[in-house]
Write a protein that binds this DNA or RNA. Structure first.
Lengths: 198, 198
DNA sequence: CGTCCGCTTGACTCAGATCAAACTTGGTGG
DNA sequence: CCACCAAGTTTGATCTGAGTCAAGCGGACG
């Protein structure tokens, strides 16, 4: 995310550590902190009525999460440490005060949210692809970085599967099919996207 | 959307009219205008590689669209008039200039985008529901307004079906099932959500 | 060394997509 | 006012592919 904003917001932040699987905040609880991941990984999930859960976002080291808390009285999803995580916490009310007095911060924040909207729309687009292999390939392309385009394993692929709305079995089968079709190359902890069309 | 922002942005807007089905802008073309719908309806769609299309958002009378254009060089989806539409157009570059000079506008915009993020996440949540009737019911609850909670027909239900990732047939079948289960009541051009649990 | 978790594969089931066909509705023009 | 047409709606039959259950493999870690 945008570095200037991070540094200004977290200049006077507290730090906290969480064990893997531990809940950082619950959906519905009043917003108090804006977070940044120093190390580890945090998943934003929404529990569904049937007991399953949906990963709506994942924050890796260096990234912030719960920015929407700045404009809401309650968190609107759960945050769970996907691995032992060290977090910085900046108080929401102080940031809100600064946003009104330092206008350039608000513009940076608006730009950040605009990017989020674009990302979420792309995620929605991926969801409309019915065939699992094509869906997974589209998701991989979306997340590939570097040359050659590579996707690092996000903790476990099974967790990623929930992010694209597939069962873990269907996800693994899709990886196998894509690999045997030479559209991707699988490493031990990453995947290289071979095809570059479309 | 937030009225103050609308009025300030569109105080010096041009107007244009489009026929139903006409394209307002294409994905990839350079951003020039922020739009507001005066009358009619506009669908934001992304063409998929297999020829189908995804409705990522729908703007009704009074609503704005293409706000993300303010922070991007290119539109990232197509805008198509779903019906004969009258639109206001505000030039992006002028708005950008005002955002830097009038800080309170940036804050309003950030708040607006934060709301969009929340809505998109809810849409993603709806998409994770596999059974069509439950999925449609969740979508209806999300869009119901007033007492009793009512959803007006968005042009045609078939268009709405693409928004939730169902074929039109599956959508109509879901409406029938929900209706016969007395969870909704169908009118000629609206649907009343009867159940209020969950 | 044993256990847990992630990964992998197979068999079966079922719900949604698809294809096909009728019906309704609204609008247009004669 | 009515014939006609287009688009939206409704229902049925069939197919397909992802979900689910089940079982086995492998590495990490205590």
């Amino acid at each position: 995310m945008i570095q200037i904003m991070i540094e200004t917001f977290f200049s006077d932040a507290r730090t906290a550590t969480y064990a893997g699987g531990q809940t950082i905040f619950h959906r519905g609880s009043p917003t108090a902190w804006l977070y940044r991941v120093v190390s580890g990984r945090v998943r934003m999930v929404r529990g569904l009525s049937d007991g399953r859960e949906l990963t709506v976002a994942t924050a890796n080291a260096g990234e912030t999460f719960a920015e929407a808390a700045l404009f809401s009285d309650n968190y609107h999803c759960d945050a769970i440490a996907a691995a032992p995580a060290e977090l910085q916490m900046a108080p929401c009310d102080r940031i809100r005060a600064r946003l009104t007095h330092e206008p350039e911060l608000a513009l940076i924040l608006a730009r950040y949210f605009a990017g989020q909207v674009r990302d979420l729309r792309m995620q929605l687009e991926v969801r409309t692809i019915k065939r699992a292999p094509e869906r997974v390939l589209a998701w991989l392309k979306l997340h590939a970085r570097g040359v050659p385009p590579t996707v690092e394993r996000p903790g476990s692929w099974a967790k990623a599967a929930t992010e694209i709305g597939l069962s873990s079995e269907a996800f693994y089968r899709a990886l196998r099919d894509l690999s045997s079709a030479h559209l991707i190359q699988r490493g031990t902890r990453d995947v290289i996207v071979v095809c570059e069309n479309n």
